[in-house]
Design a protein around this nucleic acid. Sequence first.
DNA 1: TATATAGTTATAGAACTATTTTAATATTAT
DNA 2: ATAATATTAAAATAGTTCTATAACTATATA
Lengths: 107, 107
Amino acid sequence: MGSPWKALSDDNRRKILLLLGKKDNMIPTEIAEHFKSTLPAISIQLRILKEADLIAERKLGKNRLYSLNRKKSLKLVEFFEDMYDYKLNSLKEYVENKEKKKKNNEN
Amino acid sequence: MGSPWKALSDDNRRKILLLLGKKDNMIPTEIAEHFKSTLPAISIQLRILKEADLIAERKLGKNRLYSLNRKKSLKLVEFFEDMYDYKLNSLKEYVENKEKKKKNNEN
DNA sequence: TATATAGTTATAGAACTATTTTAATATTAT
DNA sequence: ATAATATTAAAATAGTTCTATAACTATATA
């Protein structure tokens, strides 16, 4: 398991996360269209994000679908909570509800 | 101005931030006591955190006092908000109140 | 002024990171 | 089977980061 903080430290990787925040189940080719760099480069960034558990990968035919792992990102927000000695329950509840809704919508 | 995400990507630097979250106005020597590494190494980590605007430096005699810049950290939480398309007002208000209290206590 | 203290800066080596090009693999379609 | 497509893997290169040691700067004190 790679460090999620290292994974977040790259501009392109954070941009990928924002893309996946807007749209789940994107394929590498589609993601690469938003960047200047090559598909192999994007593939590596996706692997780093996956190894940091920030995104999830699903194989479907010859495609690989990538989606945000929202729960992991929440873990990172906990660092800021610790820094402020503050509990951020509202965000947790919000995301957990959103996850449930998503599951229900997936046929 | 250095990248705050790069600054956060190092374990020791995040540990420094947690230390400063518990106690403001720490000096490098005091911070270094919490680590295995040398004072020059800590000094460089503090510089990186300062250049990322995550901490503030104040000179007092031959000492340098370091404190968290809570507002900057909040900016980073906004990234997670963007990813979730969610506004985290409660945390903002909390930290802003805390800043005011701190200022009032500093005679 | 001399000395001690607190801290930074310079430098060098090891380890890590990112990107590109080229090749390899897996799946689907013909 | 063969070709086409989507994607990862490998190898080479370039650049960055971290740490330690040594040298330097600034302040305080005797």
